[in-house]
Amino acid sequence: MRIDKDRLIGILLVSPSIIAVAIFIYGFIGWSGRVSLSAWKGLNPDYTWVGLKNYINLFSDPRFQVDIRNTVIFTVLFVAGALILGLILAILLDQDLRGESIFRTIFLFPMAISYIVTGVVWRWLMNPAQGERMSGFNILFDKLGLDFLINKWYTTPEWGIAFIAIPAIWQMSGYVMALYLSGLRAIPQELREAARVDGATEVQIYRHIILPLIRPITLSAMIILGHISLKVFDLIISTVGKQLQLDVPAIYMWQTTFDGHFFGRGAAISILLLLSVAVLVIPYLRYSLKTEESL
């Protein structure tokens, strides 16, 4: 009897959150979906049904094509760069070093900082000006006699977006390192000892024993980084502002909706963005929750 009452109280306690999530996440996604199928343009809501018109227009929209290209380039460089750097750092720090915690603290501190701060500083570091007005890395390279490294950074034609991956890797590779490091620490020391006794070299131990064991972490990290990369917004805004050259879907959505008042188009971009994230994240959630249950 009392347990039934407790159960009821329990449901009452979580219901505000469940209702909030139902409305503000799922309800609002549905609402955005409806807007994406409407002719809404201008400040006043207009729900005139236009079917998939906004979506079809997007795929022939040159700006959206640039966005897709930029997203692909950025994602590949950022995910690969952060994974490789993160893994290398984790392996180096796993060697029982003196000063390990200092290194770890330094590699992770960018995670505590806003993308806006990162962007504002890297905008100066990657300042593309040359000659008289040279600054940032360019002037450093000039002073060090490394003139061949002086370049146009994010103003490089066609490939400007690639340089945004540098601050992004700076910000996130420490996180990947932490993920890998926790995985490496979970591998029993005896496993390595046994392999050493069998005459395996350190490199062989990593290649054949340790790397296969931490493969699930690579998968998790790829999905987390990948979905961050699809959503990239703040970092580009603060590094370069709104530039068509470095446009991505998240920025296009924001600009076309809130500056241009093309609500139908903005909603369509946001739904496509959501679908691309969902394709990555939903299988990952299912996998994570399933392995949790089997424990």
């Binding site: 159960r7 799922y26 955005s32 994240v281």
Partner: peptide
Amino acid sequence: FPGADLIFPAILFGMFIPYQSILIPL
């Protein structure tokens, strides 16, 4: 409670969504 194991992942998904997709209604 019945359905709690379905509600939890549904809540979790909210962590990953691009907020652009709820911005206009918000």
